[in-house]
Design a protein around this nucleic acid. Structure first.
Lengths: 127, 127
DNA sequence: TGCGATTGTATCAAAGTATGATACTATTCG
DNA sequence: CGAATAGTATCATACTTTGATACAATCGCA
């Protein structure tokens, strides 16, 4: 379900968090559905249970999942709130970051569009 | 020219590196043009000169600038090489990351397209 | 030519962050 | 109640980031 890279420069907690968020955005994890217990996921990935617990807590702080000691962790229903100005600025910034790198690496405009459309479909189509 | 945020979770070196890369991709810094000396930029930003020097070295490792002790740092001409498979995978991954977050924050498909097109124009049009 | 000014580099210490080992607490179910 | 299962807290260790300071290369001008 998730694959982590011990040699990557990005922290394990963040790798786990990012991939779970992607699964949530793609609809692979539906609201109400339980996430694996921290010990199980930690065992599968070969990391400490705290590392998974921290990823869960980060996602909970973003309102994406809800966790309760002794009971487990479940996916929360998707927020229907419209994003604010700060969120828009952050999104533009993150996109600029990705596109500027792509530009410098030699990707062309149409290639870029193709990759974008694929990702867009992945996360917006029915997800 | 650059603005950094001491309270942000992203390291100063990376903030500086990212913003310089964006300036390069947007064509605000043209090939052959000199970058400010590390002490000057460091002074402007209120950080240690080493922090700027590290950002310069990172960009040099990516082939974007060329630096020589005692002489300074200049922008290198843009590489004409086509990106390989690894670069494509990384790009898809980075885009997925950004779009999945946007999706969960409630951005709509057309809003997303608009922001993307703006960024695309910014970095590909004549830049 | 030589010396001062300017530019990037190396070294090392201090503070902050990430990860893991271990013990703790809450919930469920027989 | 008690065992099993779920998340939490604490703390030690290793790694990363930042900065202070000293070093080395290049340039320019007297």
């Amino acid at each position: 379900m998730i694959r982590i890279d011990l040699g990557a420069p990005v922290p394990l907690v963040e790798q786990i968090e990012d991939q779970l968020r992607r699964a949530l955005a793609a609809g692979e994890l539906q609201p109400g559905e339980p996430l694996p217990p921290v010990r199980q996921l930690a065992g599968d990935l070969g990391v400490n249970l705290n590392t998974v617990a921290r990823a869960y807590r980060a996602l909970e702080a973003q309102g994406l999942i809800r966790t309760q000691r002794g009971r487990g962790t479940v996916v929360t229903p998707r927020s229907r709130a419209k994003p604010g100005k700060a969120a828009s600025r952050e999104l533009r910034d993150a996109l600029d970051q990705v596109l500027s790198e792509a530009r410098l690496k030699g990707f062309g405009e149409s290639t870029m569009r193709g990759i974008f459309e694929a990702s867009l479909r992945h996360f917006w189509q029915q997800g």
